[in-house]
Simulated scan of single mutants.
Amino acid sequence: MKDSLKPGLQYRQQFLVPVSKTVPALYPEAEAFQAMPNVFATGFLVGFLEWACINAVQPFLEGPHEQTVGTHINVSHQAPTPPGFTVTATIELIGMEGRKLIFAVEAHDGIDLIAKGIHERFVIDRTKFETKVASKTSHLHHKEI
């Protein structure tokens, strides 16, 4: 992580909400989700906010071996957004604790503030992370399924 990454970094990102990012599309195999309104799903909204944070810090990471992973999210989803609306995420890096990055996040759909909260990410070394995942996966293969 470059020393130039500092609190105060701001970033905006837009996303045109398609039908494939609505509540019924979140878990197509879940009957309960199929009965829900056709609006931007909270799960996809969270992913969009994470995506904006990833893009904001990407220029400050050292090569392809450094990445960030989400570790905490506390976001209110305050208003529905139908497909066809463009959602704008506005994020600000408000704190850093070592490799932990803390963001204030918001999303607006052009009519309403639809989300507001805090998101934390951690800067990882991808090789070390993948080694840890492989070790965990090996435990799965030793158990009977």
Rank of each mutant, 00 (worst) to 15 (best):
T22S: 14
V19D: 09
N55G: 11
E120K: 06
K100G: 10
A89V: 03
L26N: 00
T22V: 06
I124L: 09
R99M: 11
L9Y: 06
L16P: 07
S76F: 02
H141F: 04
H139L: 12
I111E: 05
H72G: 05
Q58P: 04
I114M: 04
V19M: 04
L113A: 11
E130F: 10
G95V: 11
I111W: 12
P64R: 15
G110V: 05
I114R: 00
T137P: 14
M96W: 08
Y27G: 02
P18L: 02
V19Y: 08
A30P: 01
A104T: 02
F60Q: 15
F60I: 06
E62F: 15
P82Q: 12
R99W: 15
G70M: 15
V105D: 08
G43F: 09
E29Q: 09
A35I: 02
K6A: 03
H119M: 10
L45D: 12
E92P: 06
D109E: 00
L101W: 12
V19K: 13
A52G: 07
M96S: 12
G110L: 01
G43M: 12
E144K: 11
G63P: 11
G98P: 15
H141A: 13
G84I: 10
T127L: 01
T81M: 06
E144C: 03
G98Y: 15
Q78C: 01
F40M: 01
K136M: 11
V133N: 14
I102D: 07
L140G: 01
Q34I: 03
G63I: 09
D112T: 12
N38M: 06
F44V: 08
A56V: 00
M36H: 08
S4F: 02
F44I: 07
G8V: 05
D3G: 04
G8I: 04
P64W: 12
I118L: 14
A52Y: 13
A30V: 00
E66Y: 11
L49C: 15
L26A: 04
G98V: 14
A107C: 05
E66L: 10
Q14F: 06
V17I: 08
E29R: 08
T71R: 10
Q14W: 03
N38G: 07
K6Y: 06
W51R: 14
R12W: 03
G95D: 13
L101M: 11
T137A: 14
P80V: 00
E120A: 00
K132P: 06
P18A: 09
E144D: 02
P37S: 13
T131E: 10
H65R: 15
F33D: 00
G47T: 10
R99N: 15
Q78T: 01
F103W: 13
E66F: 13
A104Q: 11
P37C: 01
V46A: 13
Y11I: 04
A32Y: 05
T137K: 13
V123A: 09
H139M: 07
C53F: 08
H141V: 02
S76W: 00
E31G: 13
A104P: 05
A30L: 13
H108G: 00
H108Y: 03
G47L: 12
F15H: 14
A41I: 00
T127W: 05
L93W: 08
K100N: 09
P24M: 14
G47E: 15
V23N: 08
I91Y: 04
Q78D: 05
P64N: 13
Q34G: 08
T90C: 12
H77M: 02
I94S: 01
V17K: 06
V69E: 11
